[in-house]
């Protein structure tokens, strides 16, 4: 469905080799957590998958088709910051993807089409727990709310692949646990292959089906430029987590997860969430 295959991918910026020899197959509906020291090329890796950057050598295919060298609607993304549009309200942000798809010239929707799109957007907004905040601007939301908004905004496109770059890094542990629950549910419910960069090992093992690590094999200062990071660890989580199925062994053992409805501290009223 949405298998990503990287074959001997290298990425260099000028003289500096950032990534080398990355060969990796990411199964459809996997949840890959990517960890590694700062500056080792995790964001660069996501940029390659996004199509924002092209590999210097090697190929990346999505379902056997080489990636287009441009971001597209089949790959959604949530960055650590700046993922939502400051000039649009919560509703406007979530709606934007729909609008752009349906209205190539005017980039606006009217009448019945607009109502239908709003309906869909509202459902998604409810799903990420932002009901009640539809008319707020991002600057009026907390960091956690903004990231949930970014998720909803990306998910309305029904992307095959979702790329997350330290999306929850700036959030406090309570809110983070809450978003983890949400993230897990969304992954179970939608046809998504997820690649998430994180600095937090615990997060990686809580959410992932597979944890991979990048590391530079040689890290002496004088060698740094000439040797890129390689894939140094590749761990499948045991017992396996499978999208859409609850694990019989140890359902979500890693975290003392706080239920979503209790930990929520924003304006969204509780209980009317679609789940």
């Amino acid at each position: 469905m949405s298998e990503i295959v990287l074959d001997k991918v290298w990425k260099e910026y000028g003289d500096q080799i950032v990534l080398e020899q990355i060969s990796l197959t990411i199964a459809a509906r996997a949840f890959v957590a990517l960890v590694g020291p700062s500056g080792c090329g995790k964001t660069t890796f996501l940029r390659l998958l996004l199509g924002e950057e092209a590999p210097t050598q090697g190929t990346i295919t999505l379902d056997g088709v080489p990636l287009v060298a441009e971001p597209g609607p089949d790959r959604g993304v949530v960055f650590q910051r700046y993922s939502v549009f400051p000039h649009l309200t919560v509703l406007g942000n979530v709606l934007l993807g729909k609008v752009l798809k349906a209205s190539p010239i005017a980039a606006r929707l009217f009448g019945a089409k607009r109502r239908a799109a709003i309906e869909e957007a509202r459902q998604l907004i409810a799903e990420v727990g932002l009901t009640g905040a539809e008319d707020k601007y991002p600057a009026q939301l907390s960091g956690g709310m903004q990231q949930r908004l970014a998720l909803a905004q990306a998910l309305i496109m029904r992307p095959r692949v979702l790329l997350l770059d330290e999306p929850f890094g700036a959030l406090d542990p309570g809110i983070r646990a809450e978003i983890h629950v949400l993230m897990k549910r969304l992954w179970h419910e939608t046809e998504l292959t997820v690649v998430m960069v994180t600095h937090d090992l615990r997060e990686a093992f809580t959410l992932g089906t597979r944890v991979i690590a990048f590391e530079r094999p040689r890290d002496r200062p004088e060698e740094r430029e000439r040797y890129g990071a390689r894939l140094s660890r590749d761990i499948d989580i045991w017992p396996p987590r499978i999208a859409g199925e609850t694990s019989i062994y140890a359902p979500d053992r890693a975290d003392p997860v706080i239920p979503l409805s209790l930990a929520q501290d924003d304006l969204a009223p509780r209980g009317d969430r679609v789940s």
């Binding site: 996004l50 924002e52 441009e70 971001p71 597209g72 609607p73 790959r75 959604g76 993304v77 960055f79 910051r81 700046y82 993922s83 939502v84 549009f85 400051p86 000039h87 934007l96 993807g97 609008v99 752009l100 798809k101 190539p104 010239i105 980039a107 905004q153 990306a154 496109m157 992307p159």
Partner: peptide, 27 residues
């Protein structure tokens, strides 16, 4: 404008024209 915004707009399927109209112009 943060590069992230333009990337994000492209992942939402925006064309150059749409991005000009809905992302860049209003800001």
């Amino acid at each position: 404008l943060p590069r992230e915004q333009l990337i994000k707009a492209q992942t939402l399927g925006g064309s150059s024209w749409q991005i000009a109209l809905r992302v860049v112009l209003p800001q």
